[in-house]
Design a protein around this nucleic acid. Structure first.
Lengths: 234, 234
DNA sequence: TTTTTTTATTGAGCCTGTCTCAATAATGAG
DNA sequence: CTCATTATTGAGACAGGCTCAATAAAAAAA
């Protein structure tokens, strides 16, 4: 038989570029298949190298995963930081964080599934790196919450860390459900619903809380005016 | 050398019992090591059988996982149902669900980590079973929410499904974080904080919101009426 | 009791996938 | 052009999931 037409020639490339190529390939393969199902051999093939080469750049399959996640998180963090710089007011800032997070999930479903599913399991020692990235990212929202409590926009008895968990946990759950059921993800609508529930709470308010209270005040003011005008008449 | 002292004799046991033993062993091993790290051989050893036997009872390692989760979920569901039967009022019922869920997580951390981490990843076809269990379980809270909207205890514009995600997602996130940081889990305190934030919302309320204001308005209105009637007397 | 049938249980071994390492050849320096 | 450096390779060690023909314990039949 003739030699295979697609024979790969051995070429040397600058370390940085080859590493980037492998990382890019890993990102794709992991996102498509998940961590467990992905084979390092396939990552290698897609990067145009042989399996051994991958291990010359990354210590293990898991190290490759962490590198992929790190890259993703760094992007997410800097985007969110930039965004927060342009939005004013605690409520608006929270709505922005929720909306942006949801948009990102919708756009990069594969990667996000990876993070939700694969990052968490191994409480194994080495995931310090991932925990730290997560802390940095969710720390952005945490600071908005703390600031809100300080400046009086948020309830003074609020526990910011618990609220942050409610926020991110809620998003993840909602997204995951929509992934499972296969329903298309309506990021904008979902963001609004989540924000409304979180910000305003879910309990029905006593009627006086919204407009009714104003109405009562209005009635009082009118009554008093009536009194005043009468008394002034005398 | 002498024959090993711990040589196992081949014994036949009733199907149901052997299956239960294997399941029990799997539950322990999975909970201790997580799915990926656990070896079927170890499950077998702990159940006092050989690897092949495990496969005579369960089709695959994953089927074993699903069986373990099924058993756990069934217990959780029936406990929660029983509990809900004894608690009245939407707010109390929600607080109960949150509290009970947190208690269970605290008590069975290993298994819960398994569910959070291993169940979710594989959107792979066969997890219908798990999805269904999850639906049944979280359906309990969903029904409480829907009922609350109907009877006026909860905001009429609430989206029950989104609220359910906020509820369970928030719990999971909070627990997971405490697992990671190694902090002991204060189920009671955390349950209260989560319930408060979810029920009441996080925004600061105008002072009029809590009953005191209503009472004040009422007193004012009465006083003015008294005044008015007096003046009418003249 | 003895013989036969049934089937739970075994363990050797196949297969896929991660990871290692000595050999190889592409590149840059002298 | 030659040599030294080191990126790249590919064969294979090792681990873990899973299969299957052989085996023997229990039940049924004689």
């Amino acid at each position: 038989m003739a030699a295979p037409a697609t024979q790969r020639r051995r070429t040397r490339r600058p370390r940085a570029e080859r590493e980037a190529e492998i990382l890019e390939a890993a990102r794709t393969v992991f996102a498509e298949q998940g961590y467990a199902a992905a084979a390092v051999a396939e990552v290698a093939a897609r990067a145009g190298v042989v399996e051994g080469t991958v291990y010359a750049y990354f210590d293990s399959k898991r190290a490759l995963l962490i590198a992929v996640m790190k890259q993703f998180y760094e992007e997410l963090i800097s985007e969110t930081e930039r965004g927060l710089d342009t939005v004013r007011g605690t409520e608006n800032r929270l709505r922005f964080v929720i909306r942006h997070h949801l948009d990102t999930f919708a756009r990069e479903l594969g990667l996000c599934r990876l993070i939700v599913s694969e990052a968490r399991p191994d409480v194994a020692l080495y995931d310090e790196a991932i925990l730290d990235l997560n802390r940095r990212y969710t720390g952005l929202a945490l600071r908005v919450l703390e600031e809100g409590v300080r400046n009086g926009s948020l309830r003074s008895d609020l526990v910011p860390s618990v609220t942050r968990d409610l926020l991110y946990g809620g998003i993840e759950h909602a997204v995951w459900r929509s992934v499972f059921t296969g329903a298309p993800l309506d990021a904008a609508g979902l963001a609004d619903q989540l924000s409304d529930a979180l910000l305003g709470g879910i309990l029905a308010r006593p009627v006086t809380a919204n407009g009714a209270a104003d109405a009562a005040v209005l009635r009082l003011e009118r009554a008093i005016e009536r009194l005043e005008s009468r008394m002034g008449d005398e």
